[in-house]
Design a protein around this nucleic acid. Sequence first.
RNA 1: UGGGCUGUAGUAUAAUGGUAGUACAGCGGGUUCUGGUUCCGUAUGUGGGGGUUCGACUCCUCCCAGCCCAACCA
Length: 556
Amino acid sequence: MSETPTNFIRQIVEADLAAGKNDGRVHTRFPPEPNGYIHIGHAKAICINYGIAEDTGGKYNLRFDDTNPAGEDVEYVDAIQQDIRWLGFDWEDRLYYASDYFERLCQSAEELILSGNAFVCDLTPEQMKEYRGTIIEPGRQSPWRDRSVEKNLDLFRRMKAGAFDDGSRTLRAKIDMASPNLNMRDPVIYRIKREHHHRTGDTWCIYPMYDFTHCLSDAFEGITHSLCSLEFEDHRPLYNWFLDNLDVPCHPQQIEFARLNLSYTIMSKRRLRRLVEEGHVNGWSDPRMPTLRGLRRRGFTPESIREFMNRIGVAKAASVVDYSLLVYCLREDLNRRASRVMAVLRPLKLIIDNYPEDQVEWLDADNNPEDESAGKRKLAFGRELWIEQGDYLEDAPRKWFRLTPGREVRLKHAYYVTCTRAVKDADGNVVEVHCDYDPSTRGGWSDDGRKVKGTLHWASVAHAIDAEVRLYDYLFREASPGERTGDFIDDLNPDSLEALRGCKLEPGLAEAQPGDRVQFLRLGYFCADEDSRPDAPVFNRTATLRDTWAKVAKDK
RNA sequence: UGGGCUGUAGUAUAAUGGUAGUACAGCGGGUUCUGGUUCCGUAUGUGGGGGUUCGACUCCUCCCAGCCCAACCA
């Protein structure tokens, strides 16, 4: 992986370090809410927060921001940890939950009441909305804003004790109802909500709000730099207000960056949920999903994702990154690491007429031309082979390198063969191709300097195993899903998944374990799926190889 | 309409008053037992107008465009 380039946040952190701020400490955190699976957008936040700490000798925490039990679940708590570990980060023993701070947060709330900076408000949600004002008009003060400290304290304690109905009262900060920043218009600190919490059970009937919880949690943990996405910029004054008005161990600095957008991809939890619930994909780990689980199952490596994050940089301008860069990072990684194997996805029988009927030869094949240490393997070769349907064409264009009557090509690792004729069925479909081979080209090489432009992959009919191969393409056919009609569902790519059965694989692939990644020669990078079994292998196409021929053919 | 933020090749970013650079994508070519990899070459950019300065992507000013904010969500 390349070294992480600098960016404006790193420069701030480095300047703080140079100035001796925070006693020379760097301590960051990633604060997911456990109400869904994390996706590649979260991966950016993780890489930024954790990467900076790693590179400056600092520490990083994982903290679940579990202040709203509705929708939260231990299932997500576990899944998120798995996914972050898979990405390659280790928060050691620094796993925290905002819910662990509930008691402490309550004390901070009382501190705010005591200093006259918070009050219990009896406004209903509808009234509160009315009082809040709008973007262009100031809000009005709550009629309950001037209750005495004693009354507020009493009311708040009774809120906590369960004396009031859900939603009937809130604890609010006393700031400024006329502020142009809506977040500062006496924001709610605590709400009454009788909801079972995945960690605290039914202990609490009041839960703290994000703005109050987050800054304090950061302070409790000694966070130095609290890095979050742009939409929290407007919250920063409030973040600072709480820390300035409370007795806290430290005052972390919040810095915001632009979140990741990827072309041909949606990133919002709400929209991803809809894909799952409406059955457009097969769950959160569908290989077409941008979730970390989806990308993992698709065959992406954590290294390629981290490299991608290094390359896209960090800035404050809202941006959309080309999906092709992600694929580039994947290919760069797998080109180096993946073993080459041969698989025929759409088989067409090739018969070598001048090859001895029952002869089998075992030929040498190198596993990875990019990596000598990957070694070699033996491949069975015979008279009848499977080749790719797309590698034969009767009326070939001028630059066609593959099989067509009269043309000589190389069978990878094997022999030169010259196409003699094709057999068609009643409908005119090619069902069988015949050829002659040149025995002197064993191994796929000729001493006479003869040139063949095309090299085909193949599988021995007598030895190949059958497999299912799932070809994945963009989930959306538009770079910005939903831009045309307003509904991203309209831009779903109907061909995002094509499942091929009866694909012919070289026999060694029967032993592939789920998660194993290989390159199917000339076709792309593939990954054994979790559905794969030794007697019924299943492979997912992670990405195709770059294909300049496909581009030429398409341009014509 | 109020506030906050952001505008550098197609895309993402660097240059922090001193030669506008890098990567992906594109295009052209060499090498190659993968039309892969690799190598070489190439086009394209500071949102606009004023100003300060010997010199402006950078500082000032006006304009334009885009994003975010009116949950008892995070």
